[in-house]
Simulated scan of single mutants.
Amino acid sequence: MFSGLIKFLETEDQLAGVLGHEIAHADRRHTSRSLQKEFGVSFLLSLLLGENPNQLAQIAASLGQLRFSREYEVEADEFSVRYLNSTPYSCDGAAGFFIKAAAQAPTSTPEFLSTHPNPGTRVEAIQAKAKELNCASRTTDNASFLELKRIL
């Protein structure tokens, strides 16, 4: 979390959504799971191809890691909604962040080459989960958040 992100956000719900997403990465142990998979794949490739896997094997391993990274992003988005469900915040706050981010920097990278899912897909999934849990569109007083942005 950094001040530039807080300045970029428009509502306290968006801030709660982004924080929920980042907390989900920690809670769901995405970093350690990613490292386990990365080293596991590298180990298997070294067994199959010898100690020096060729360039094609390295590319295949990298593309596999991108898929895991996208899966973790999707999981963090879902858990952000779940975490915020029991709070006064609109649980689809992270969707507002992705809508704004996508409008400012449209992506041109195909999803299969990216570490993150397509923003439009993420917004749809977040909003669908919020609808399922019936926790979207809550109204939060943004006065404290706006004061924080003013101070920054």
Rank of each mutant, 00 (worst) to 15 (best):
L5Y: 06
I6L: 14
I6N: 04
F8T: 00
L9C: 08
E10S: 09
E12K: 01
Q14W: 09
L15A: 08
A16H: 01
G17D: 08
E22P: 00
E22N: 01
E22A: 03
A24H: 02
A24G: 06
D27A: 11
D27V: 15
H30I: 08
T31K: 10
R33G: 11
Q36Y: 13
E38L: 14
G40D: 12
V41A: 08
V41K: 10
S42Y: 15
F43V: 01
F43D: 10
L44P: 02
L44Y: 12
L44N: 07
S46G: 14
S46R: 15
L47I: 06
L47E: 14
L47W: 15
L48R: 13
L49A: 12
L49Q: 12
P53E: 05
P53T: 00
P53Y: 04
N54M: 05
Q55A: 13
Q55W: 12
L56G: 05
L56R: 09
L56N: 06
A57Y: 11
Q58N: 15
I59P: 14
A61T: 02
S62A: 15
L63Q: 13
L63K: 12
G64E: 09
Q65G: 06
L66S: 05
R67H: 13
F68W: 10
F68R: 02
R70E: 07
R70T: 07
E73Y: 11
E73M: 05
A76N: 02
D77V: 02
S80E: 04
S80M: 03
Y83W: 07
Y83K: 04
N85T: 12
S86I: 09
T87L: 11
P88H: 12
P88D: 14
S90K: 00
D92K: 01
D92T: 01
F98E: 02
I99V: 11
A101M: 09
P110C: 00
F112Q: 05
F112A: 03
L113I: 01
L113N: 03
S114R: 00
S114Q: 05
T115P: 07
H116I: 06
P117I: 01
G120Y: 08
V123L: 04
V123M: 04
I126P: 01
K131R: 09
K131Q: 13
N134C: 10
T139A: 13
T140N: 03
E147N: 04
R150H: 12
R150L: 15
